[in-house]
């Protein structure tokens, strides 16, 4: 079953002045458990596509379904709630909350979801163990390396038990060892727990590990290759 489905998705910036068509009708289906990289040169529209399937932006044409729900017409507040329950974000610059510890960063979204304390505590330990940071529970982001911060970000993205994880250039700021480590963790989570990952990336190391690579060129899908 497709967890993400886009049909004829278009995005035009500045429609009234000098229109820029970033997406020109994208049809894409991503099934549960896929490990997909969206690639393409700068300006190809991959960040725009990611923002739209992540519910951060709305298409100007077509529609987007996540988990069977059309999110393209939702209000801002509905989108916030939808993202909280269904989408886990991993950002290029980690974007952890600097004043919270690793444990608190992971716990934060679950607090927004009003999960019980027992459930939160258990899940924080489980997730930070899964990303190999069980000994860094009480460290703040400033006390962690880039790779460690990004692993905390992955744990945070997983915390709300989302429908899928959206990772925007997750390895762009990481060295090779950290990148390999992070990719290992994500691949394992994907393999063992069937978590769906969607990346946008330039990084060949990520592309090499992806099981599906969608190439965008000038706002349309140019290639869609699956590897097993």
């Amino acid at each position: 079953m497709a967890v993400i489905k886009t049909k004829g998705v278009e995005k035009t910036y500045n429609p009234d002045k000098i229109p820029v068509r970033a997406l020109k009708g994208v049809d894409l289906e991503i099934a549960e458990g896929e490990f997909t990289a969206i690639v393409g040169p700068s300006g190809s529209g991959k960040t725009t596509l990611l923002n739209i399937i992540g519910g951060l932006d709305r298409p100007t044409g077509g529609y987007v379904e996540v988990g069977g729900e059309d999110i393209s017409q939702m209000s801002d507040n509905e989108l916030i709630d939808f993202r909280k329950e269904h989408i886990g974000f991993v950002f290029q610059a980690y974007n952890l909350i600097p004043v919270l510890t690793a444990r608190e960063n992971v716990e934060f979204v679950m607090l927004l979801q009003n999960r019980s304390k027992a459930e939160r505590d258990a899940r924080v330990k489980e997730l930070l163990h899964a990303v190999g940071l069980e000994d860094k529970l009480d460290k703040r982001p400033s006390e962690l390396s880039g790779g460690q911060q990004q692993r905390v970000a992955v744990a945070r993205a997983l915390a709300p038990k989302p429908t899928f994880i959206l990772a925007d250039e997750p390895t762009a700021n990481l060295d090779s060892a950290s990148t390999a480590n992070l990719l290992d963790i994500m691949a394992r989570l994907n393999r063992e727990e069937h978590i769906t990952f969607v990346f946008s990336t330039h990084d060949q190391r990520v592309i090499d590990r992806a099981r599906r690579v969608v190439t965008l060129v000038d706002g349309v899908i140019d290639k869609d290759e699956r590897r097993e």
Binding site: I80, D81, R83, F91, A93, N95, I97, P98, L112
Partner: peptide, 16 residues
């Protein structure tokens, strides 16, 4: 600003 954007992205609503 970036952090506030992130908080809203991961599901912190406007009231919060």
């Amino acid at each position: 600003i970036k952090e506030l954007g992130m908080l809203m992205a991961i599901g912190m609503n406007k009231a919060k």
